[in-house]
Design a protein around this nucleic acid. Sequence first.
DNA 1: TCTTCCATAGGAAAAATTCCCGACTTTTAT
DNA 2: ATAAAAGTCGGGAATTTTTCCTATGGAAGA
Lengths: 210, 210
Amino acid sequence: MTSLHVAIADDHAVVRTGYRRLLELEPNVSVVAEFADCETAYTWLSANHADILILDLSMPGRGGLETLRRLKARVPTLKVLVFSMHGAPAMVSQAMQAGADGYLTKSSAPEALIAAVLDLGAGGHPLSAEAARALGEAGNDSQAPHQVLSPREFQVFTMLAQGLAVDEIAARLCVSAKTVANYQTAIRQKTGLSNALEMFRYARTHALLE
Amino acid sequence: MTSLHVAIADDHAVVRTGYRRLLELEPNVSVVAEFADCETAYTWLSANHADILILDLSMPGRGGLETLRRLKARVPTLKVLVFSMHGAPAMVSQAMQAGADGYLTKSSAPEALIAAVLDLGAGGHPLSAEAARALGEAGNDSQAPHQVLSPREFQVFTMLAQGLAVDEIAARLCVSAKTVANYQTAIRQKTGLSNALEMFRYARTHALLE
DNA sequence: TCTTCCATAGGAAAAATTCCCGACTTTTAT
DNA sequence: ATAAAAGTCGGGAATTTTTCCTATGGAAGA
C-alpha cells in the first residue's frame, strides 16, 4: 500500500506541529504540507496533490466553511477531515453539507485522529461520537420557534433575541409592556429558551435574524 | 543542569500529546503529568512536584483563572506558563494578575514553547510578542470591564456573559445567590451593560470568553 | 353558527433586582 | 506599623419583572 499524503490547515503553529508528529508515527502517512490560513491552503491544494486535508474550521481568513466548499468544488477527489473545537449540531451539519468527508472534535483521543485519517484513506467517513450525535439532532427540530410560535410571538421572539428590553419592544409594537411580558413568558415556555441570550444563540445558529 | 519537570493541562488530548512530543525533544525537559481538567491538575500539583505547569485557560471545570489563583496560593514555587488560544488584552492582563509567570498564545512558533519553558526554568517571564503588546494596551481602555471590575466581579461577569443564571453561578461559586445578584448589579452599573446579551456581545468582541 | 386560535391586557402572586448596610479580610499607602 | 482603601460576602426592604390566571373581542374554519 502506498503512503497517504496528508495536508494540515490550522492557524496554530504548535498545534500543527503536534499533529504532524503524531501522524508521522504512522508509516503509511506522510505530511506533505501545512497551512496557517485558508487562502494558502486553497492555492496550494489547487496546484498540488494531497489525499487528505485536515482542516480546522476556526481559522482566520473568514470562512473555513466557505473554503471547504470552494475546495471540494475545485478538487473533488480531495478528502477533507474537519477537526473542530466544538461539536455543535449546527456546525457539524453545516460542515457535512459543505462537503466534509469526516468530522472530529479536538477532544478526541490522539489515536482517533490517526484512525480517522486511515479510515478516510480507505474510503470511510469517520465521525466522532459527539459529531454523530449532533448530526442526529440536527434533523429533529420539529419544535423550532417558527413552528410552535404564533406570528406575533415569533416577532417578539426575534426582538428579544436581539437584546431589546420588554419596554422597548412594547414601545415599538405600540402595545402594553404587560402584553409583551406575557408573550415573553409564552415564548420561554414553548421553546424552552429561558433568557435572551439563549434566544440569541438559537436565533443565530438557525439563521432566524435578518 | 538537572531536568525540568513539566506538567501539561489542556482539555484536548491531541493537543496535549502534541506538546509532549515537542517538549520531549529537549533533553533537559521531561513531561511528568498531563491533565484534562482543572480539578485533576490542582489535586495532583498539590501533592506532587513539578517545576512548570503549562496551562490552557480555556479548560472545563469552571475557571482556568481561578485554578491559576488557587494553584499559586497553594504552590507558590510552581511556575505557570499560560498558553491560550488568544492574546486578548483583557485575558493577558487578568492572567498575569492572577499569578501567571509567562503567557504564550497558541499562534506562537513551536520553538517558542520550548524557549519559553527554558526561560521559565531560568527564572524569566516569557511573553509572546502578542501578549506583551496586549499588556501595553490593557492600560488604555480605562473603562473596560477588566479595569473597573474586581477579580470576583470579573469572574461573575464572564459567567453572566455565557448565559448562566444567577442561581447557577451561585452554585458553582458556592456563595449565596444574593451575593451573585449583588455582583450583577455592580457589574451592570460599572460597565453600563444592562443585560446578559449585552455582556455576551461585549465579551465576544473583546475576546474575554474561553 | 359554533369552536378554536390569536392578540390584547388587567390583577395578584412569585421571583428577580436594586439599594443600603454591616462584618470581616486583604491589600495598599503613609 | 498602623491607618486607609478595597474586596468579599450576605441580610433586609423596596422596587421591578415575570409568571399565572382570567377575560374580551376578532378572525378563521368546520
